[in-house]
């Protein structure tokens, strides 16, 4: 089988990404964090577990024959669960490159996409896309925030359609755009007068920050496992409608 794909998860070290891009200029890059509807659950990880980490392992198994390598973020910029998924995948025979990108001294980039007028789902997709390829941001307009979305890219992206376009992105996703995915200080910074939904993927350690910050800034804390329930959707709808 022709190996033509490089899998990645989280925010791997850009230096290693660039090296691989030079080494494999024609490779197709796949974000293994993202749920793909055609990929089955191989039931390698526990049923009750972080959906994002389950996506990484399931997607890796699905693409196994095509994968040149998987470049995995396993440091403070990702999580312990990703580090353990890396251990499992290595043990299963995958070619894994682990990176830790914990440098918080880097000059932070402007969060142009996070504060733009794009629909929220496009903002988040563009930010994750930029991990691998440069994005032209010259035509993006900044808007003042009416709402905020704090957190990691959710497994169920459809919830992002509930937000108006003048929603700013905060939390880890904004840290990614700013080039400092391991900077907790930046991660907890929000505009305190902007009504914000603090999102946590279920079984993620960042739930502690989401809950704490929602209380501190009078926002809405939501925790979603796989697909958002009607109750969660209604909560977000109500928060946006009533605030």
């Amino acid at each position: 089988m022709d190996k033509s794909t490089i899998g990645f998860c989280g925010y791997p070290d850009p230096y290693i990404i660039n090296k691989l891009k030079v080494q494999y200029p024609d490779a197709c890059w796949v974000d293994l964090d993202v749920e793909l509807s055609f990929v089955p659950d191989y039931k390698i990880l526990p049923q009750v577990y972080c959906k994002i980490i389950k996506n990484i392992v399931n997607n890796a198994v699905y693409y196994k024959d095509k994968l040149i390598t998987i470049i995995m973020a396993t440091g403070r910029e990702k999580c312990d669960s990703a580090a353990l998924a890396s251990v499992i995948l290595k043990n299963m025979g995958f070619n894994i490159i682990e990176t830790k990108y914990e440098n918080i001294e880097t000059i932070k980039k402007e969060p142009i996409i996070s504060t733009s007028s794009l629909p929220l789902v496009e903002k988040i997709q563009l930010i994750t896309k930029e991990i691998i390829e440069p994005i032209d941001k010259t035509k993006l307009n900044r808007v003042n925030p009416r709402f905020g979305f704090w957190g990691v890219p959710p497994n169920d992206l459809s919830i992002l359609n509930l937000f108006p376009d003048d929603t700013h992105v905060y939390g880890w996703t904004r840290c990614v755009e700013m080039g400092v995915p391991a900077c907790y200080e930046t991660e907890i910074m929000v505009d305190e007068n902007v009504p914000t939904v603090f999102y946590s993927q279920a079984f993620c350690a960042k739930a502690s920050l989401a809950k704490y910050l929602s209380f501190k800034y009078n926002g809405l804390y939501v925790d979603i496992d796989d697909i958002a329930t009607n109750s969660i959707v209604a909560k977000i709808e109500a928060f946006i409608n009533l605030r």
Binding site: T229, N230, S231, A234, K235, A238, L242, R243
Partner: peptide, 20 residues
């Protein structure tokens, strides 16, 4: 089959929960 609450502070919507 469910319960929900909302909280107003000084007449302004503040917080909610919906438990199914």
């Amino acid at each position: 089959r469910d319960s929900k609450w909302i909280r107003f502070t000084n007449g302004k919507f503040c917080d909610l929960d919906w438990n199914v």
